[in-house]
């Protein structure tokens, strides 16, 4: 059992943030989650996380460490999407020359999609997310969720799409700014410093 440093509410031992107010929990050995300010003199920024699906208002906007807003996430998505889209267009154009070439390009697009999903899992960031200063982390750990779960999260986005893409819009009103895939995977996307564009995670 750990206790919130802001409101004092008790939380699960392995949670990183208070389910009541989203404040940071007392550090019991566990390191500060990635994305939060290191060694601040005041209370470190929390994500403004709240449990469940309704009730409290959407978390306030602020700088690094806070939940990212929908617009920023959408632009990040568009950057990744544009990469794959350009590849697909090349595939369609080559398809007029040879079907085999198109199949090869389609496989490359699929492999690239998987690679991006694994990047998000391993580092918390895809190329678009690095440019926009976004990071996907597990709610409980505050850390990236790992390659395997990153792949599963990408699959879980099917749920966002199957209901006419409404799931992708959830961060517009959800108080933890989660898509349905985020809810399934217990992840949130937070604001981190922006980086230069790179297809692979910087060393």
């Amino acid at each position: 059992m750990r206790y919130c440093t802001q409101c004092g509410a008790a939380s699960e031992a392995n949670d990183a943030f208070c389910a009541q107010c989203g404040g940071p929990l007392g550090t019991e050995g566990a390191g500060r989650p990635a994305g939060t300010a290191p060694g601040g003199s005041e209370a470190p920024p929390a994500y403004g996380l709240s449990g469940g699906y309704g009730g409290a208002p959407i978390a306030p906007h602020a700088g690094p460490g806070q939940l990212a807003d929908w617009g920023t996430r959408f632009i990040g998505f568009l950057i990744d999407f544009a990469l794959l889209f350009v590849l697909s267009i090349v595939g369609v154009m080559l398809g007029r020359v040879s079907v085999a070439l198109q199949v090869i390009i389609d496989l490359v697009v699929f492999a690239a999609s998987v690679y991006l999903a694994i990047q998000v899992g391993q580092t918390g960031q895809s190329p678009g997310m690095r440019v926009m200063g976004l990071k996907c982390i597990g709610i409980q750990t505050g850390q990236p969720i790992g390659a395997g779960l990153g792949f599963v999260r990408a699959i879980a986005h099917i749920v966002d799409s199957i209901i006419c893409y409404i799931g992708w819009l959830f961060p517009l009103w959800d108080r933890n700014r989660q898509t349905l895939a985020d809810k399934i995977m217990s992840t949130v996307v937070i604001v981190v410093p922006k980086q230069a564009f790179s297809l692979t995670p910087p060393a």
């Binding site: 309704g54 009730g55 208002p57 906007h61 807003d69 617009g71 632009i75 009103w173 959800d174 700014r177």
Partner: peptide
């Protein structure tokens, strides 16, 4: 869970998506 979704819509940084639309 959809029934309890917030009706408060977060319109912060919607400008670029709006330009896109």
């Amino acid at each position: 869970m959809i029934a309890t979704a917030r009706y408060e819509v977060d319109c912060h940084s919607l400008r670029v998506p709006a330009v896109g639309l």
